[in-house]
Nucleic acid binder design. Structure first.
Lengths: 261, 261
DNA sequence: TCGGCCTCATTGACTAGACAATGTAGACGT
DNA sequence: ACGTCTACATTGTCTAGTCAATGAGGCCGA
């Protein structure tokens, strides 16, 4: 039972359970032994068993559904394709391209939109070439799929650029914000994507209803006009257990040499 | 001191400390109060204080350096550019393109390379069009920067494709593996990138010397030949606290419409 | 001066409890 | 048959300790 090996007891308990999960003995959604039964199995107190559970929870392998017990987390990732912003336009109007894809799979998408004026966070200010005392327009969206939050999508625009435009209206922009930007003389033709991986802040965790042990990707897009002026920053927060980020590349013609990467 | 608000005591302690970190009062690398002093500050037992610390550690905000104390984690991310595989070739031979960039910044890169024959994990098998009983050649690399592991880079090739080639030799391939593939009649001209975000497995954590509370990005690249045959899968594991993944896009000429994303 | 040893502050691991919070299922009443 | 209420199993929070492990800094001897 207690597979031997060095280290603290709680680690061995966690290792045993992890092995049973990975072997498939405990499949996705399966109920783990109760803390009580593990205390007798291993002859330790409940505090020690709880420490083992904590390890698995923090690894994202297990979720606690109080007071029903601990369960093997079931992960279902949907594919998120940043590139598609500039690809096909399936025109289910209303919803944007990301949701579009999901509709075709029979999902029920929805979203909330809020617009506010505020000072930008440091990362956004730096990318828009503003200071932290300037004012930006923030369009905050939370996208849901079948009722559960799927990701958040906050767009930051310099105030003087979008003042009075449709962008400041807290409703979906059928044409897409980029079209509005173009009409304002700030067409976005170039974008820099950055992805940071970290644990969610408490704010993010509650906005996205993220459980313990689930990291997020912060996908930050800075959009530029033809002449290199930054006109928007988008911060997408993607919970790791619900997303697979995908993009494609084709080799530019006549590349001479190539790395191993 | 004990900022009021509902919820368990350990959460309030964690919230207080988090606020002090975010406000800059406790900057990167700063030492947190000892558990002992917190017990007296809040009038609770050490177990409760430890629970609060655990929260911050799992959020990746704090690291424990036993027995010196708890410290605010300092994060330094280096930029990782998947696209560069097919971009400039600065030709510092020996090292690949990723390392190349770091050399220019005065860092000391190194790597270990191991080659083995084994059956592929499920995700790799699926992408190479193999079964889990087929044999693949795995080139496992760990890349270091200034002595600390930076990321892992495991390439999987179908055995019959690279049998006897330079790829099976556990040394750096100066020309780049892609060139060797081309010589074998399997030039990689198209690639699909996938990024998964999750907590590290214990294996990954030890290989990369990752602390608690640090998630990873699994960056999986499937390379295809011109006629759509998969010839390699690369699994890059990137610790979240050391990487910023970046790529750029330029709008294809004459896109009519555009989404908000 | 320099290496080795010892002390000590601090975190890690664990025991042995108590009481609170909360879904679920079964008993019960209408 | 159907809603309501209650008991219960299970996890969450917390107390009050003990002993172990470990890096750092100071002490001491050669």
């Amino acid at each position: 039972m207690t597979s031997r090996g060095a280290g603290p007891i709680y680690q061995r308990i966690a290792d045993d359970l992890r092995a049973r999960i990975q072997s498939g003995e405990l499949g996705a959604g399966a109920k783990l032994p109760t803390e009580q039964s593990l205390t007798t199995d291993y002859g330790v107190t409940r505090a020690t068993v709880r420490q083992a559970m904590q390890v698995l929870v923090n690894e994202g392998l297990v979720v606690s559904e109080r007071p029903r017990g601990h369960f093997v987390r079931q992960i279902e990732r949907l594919t998120y394709r940043p590139q598609k912003e500039w690809r096909e336009r399936p025109l289910h109007r209303e919803l944007d391209q990301f949701m579009d894809e999901q509709v075709e799979l029979g999902r029920k998408p929805s979203q909330t939109i809020a617009v506010e004026l505020a000072t930008p966070p440091a990362d956004v200010a730096a990318r828009l070439g503003l200071t932290e005392t300037d004012t930006v327009v923030i369009r905050k969206r939370v996208r849901y799929l079948d009722g559960t939050p799927f990701n958040t999508n906050d767009s930051y625009f310099p105030l003087e650029l979008v003042q009075g435009s449709e962008i400041m209206h807290p409703a979906d922009i059928g044409r897409g914000a980029n079209v509005v930007l173009a009409e304002l003389g700030a067409e976005q033709t170039h974008a820099v994507d950055e992805i940071e991986v970290r644990m969610p802040t408490p704010d993010e965790a509650s906005r996205l209803e993220i459980g313990l042990g689930v990291p997020v990707a912060l996908h930050r897009v800075t959009g530029y006009t033809d002449d290199g002026r930054p006109v928007r920053v988008v911060r997408n927060v993607l919970p790791g257990d619900r997303h697979l980020i995908a993009f494609e590349r084709t080799r530019p013609a006549k590349a001479e040499k190539d790395s191993e990467q």
